[in-house]
Design a protein around this nucleic acid. Structure first.
Lengths: 217, 217
DNA sequence: ATTATATTTTAGGCAAATCTAAATTATTTT
DNA sequence: AAAATAATTTAGATTTGCCTAAAATATAAT
């Protein structure tokens, strides 16, 4: 159970660098990990020395092949455990994140292979994110943030970031994976959205929330 | 995932102090945990300060009520996970220990309650050891070390300590939980035993091994 | 192109958990 | 009961991952 911190950094870099492997910046990492920028710099140097990231002072980091492989492995574990928690143990959306954060660091290839098989090789986790297979392959989905949709467009809720508070709130206002949303109006002042859910009830969501909801067109 | 080290110490003290809560000594702990005695002393002071153990220099430790409760909780988690690994994921005897050592430190009461229910509240783990219930209660079994049996006595193998090497060896020579053993002969020179298994094949085991096998009369 | 602001890095420290080597206390032997 | 041996503790270091405050660099604004 060593290297938990390193693993969290690699995963964070992977997630923040998005589909195109963009550089990730110190402050963003610090924010995401709830650490201070100085600590991030320290760790980036260590990760660079171990060849898990390419790092040049003042210009952000990217994962090396090796680092990306590790990161994907952790994401795989995280999502498999989330699937297990929801589908076998009856956890709800908002209860799983914290536990999966811990379980993802359990070190045992055998365990993950067996778990994967036990769950019948699921393709996506309870948030709708793809679960990489044992070779690190997973299908990218072409999704957008809800916040980026134009007025009048229709879409289907696809992924939601892993924040318990948000998840609880969304459940409450009726947004779940698979919910059909139509953007009725974008309020220019604060970029909040007026949505219609499944062709029925109308709700208002802030721009901030809309950024955290991914949809498929 | 903090306090892993503390948890390991508490569990070790619990296990080494046996049924009668005997004091546990620094060197024994050091040996069991693969640490140095000096490190053990350091940690004992810290645990004493937190009121998890009663510790007086040079005279061993015992768990306080509080400490014992924590220790039992960890044992409960360890054994539940072992049960899960064997009965759901198809692990064998000798593959589970290392993984359970990690899983036992996952921090989530909800997880353990759900897992317990999912497994239908098992009473004992794959080694035959009792699994404490949510209140820390479990039935003590009156078992003895095989090494302590007199010649001609019969017994049933009940528990085996958690060392992968030993477990693999025992599987190989035909000893499993539930195996009936009869002590045919005790060799006085080295205290090794000549055993008959299930009324059939005869095997020889060293005193060292016989100490690690618990039997029921 | 300077200046102001924001970001990132360096320097120096701290707490946890471990270690080695030396000192202390207990136990066993003669 | 003194001496020898064994067990335990203390003292002082090391490593990891984090921190604050100050310095350096990059970016934006005038």
């Amino acid at each position: 159970m060593k290297n938990i911190s390193e693993e969290n950094y690699l995963k964070a870099i992977f997630i923040l660098s998005g589909k195109n492997d963009q550089e990730v910046f110190t402050n963003d990492l610090a924010l995401y990990l709830s650490n201070k920028a100085a600590s991030v710099t320290d760790m980036l140097k260590k990760l660079a020395q171990k060849k898990f990231v390419s790092y040049k002072k003042y210009s952000g980091v990217t994962l090396t092949e090796q680092g990306k492989k590790k990161a994907i492995d952790i994401v795989r574990k995280h999502r498999l455990w989330e699937f297990f928690l929801v589908n076998q143990l009856g956890f709800t959306w908002d209860e799983i994140h914290e536990v999966a954060e811990q379980l993802e660091h359990i070190q045992s290839d055998l365990l993950i292979e067996r778990l994967d098989a036990y769950l019948r090789f699921p393709q996506s986790d309870p948030h709708g994110d793809p679960i990489p297979n044992r070779n690190g392959k997973f299908k990218q989905t072409n999704s957008k943030a809800l916040a980026e949709l134009a007025e009048r467009s229709n879409a289907i809720v696809f992924t939601v970031t892993d924040k318990p508070d948000l998840l609880r709130y969304l459940s409450k206002i009726g947004i779940a994976l698979g919910t059909k949303v139509k953007v009725l109006e974008k309020i220019p002042f604060d970029n909040s959205l007026l949505l219609q859910l499944n062709g029925k009830n109308k709700i208002q969501v802030s721009a901030d929330i809309a950024k955290h909801i991914k949809v498929q067109l």
